[in-house]
Nucleic acid binder design. Structure first.
Lengths: 106, 106
DNA sequence: CAAACTAGTTGGTGACACAAACCAGCATAG
DNA sequence: CTATGCTGGTTTGTGTCACCAACTAGTTTG
């Protein structure tokens, strides 16, 4: 039973393509609403909704619901923890990648 | 129904952490055997076995079984396609990452 | 012979990503 | 008023699949 290199273990919650996209988009903006996230990530409403719920439950995003122009509006922003975790995830991916290409792409 | 940016869609077959590790290790060596892969990836035998089967079925790796010192020996190497696909996957991840950090880490 | 070890494979199970169906509010059409 | 159809979401049903435990096959040790 090998003990995996802790540094390289990938967090599935974050690694999942849909959520990785959501979190990565969020890390470039202060906040984003549901419709914007749907457009940028290409996720369906259903998937986006459930991913957001999971991310919120995990404390990675803060969700604020309100009404804008009489329409429901779901605003999402990274929490401090969320921001740390997505950065750390990209760092881990870099380290994994560098296992195979220690000198970087030539 | 938004159409996702084709360039950014992540292939789950490759993206799965265990397989991403296997493929990344393989991309740095000519070939590797089961035990070596288990040590380097930290996967259990069962997981490694089933991931390898999936990768072989997908044509990403070539598996050669033989006996070495009277023990079964499973040798694994990337196919040409496999090598292309893992490189392309890392490129996609780079592009996704750069959506949020177009200037690199500041 | 049995017990333990190596090198794997297979089967059962729970988690979960997905899309379809659903829901609520608003707007126009008749 | 009812009906139709938007927008902006949530919930539900289902199939996939990653995981670990159990198993197989052969070898070595006693």
């Amino acid at each position: 039973m090998p003990e995996p290199n802790e540094e390289l273990v990938l967090d599935r919650l974050i690694h999942e393509p849909g959520r990785l996209a959501i979190l990565t988009v969020l890390s470039s903006v202060k906040s984003a609403d549901f419709v914007f996230l749907q457009r940028t990530t290409g996720l369906t409403k259903g998937n986006l909704s459930s991913h957001l719920t999971r991310l919120e439950e995990a404390g990675l995003v803060k969700i604020t619901k309100s009404f804008v122009l009489k329409k429901p509006n779901t605003n999402v922003e990274l929490t401090k923890v969320g921001r740390q975790r997505i950065v750390e995830h990209w760092n881990r991916l870099d380290r994994l990648k560098n296992l195979s290409q220690p000198k970087g792409e030539g």
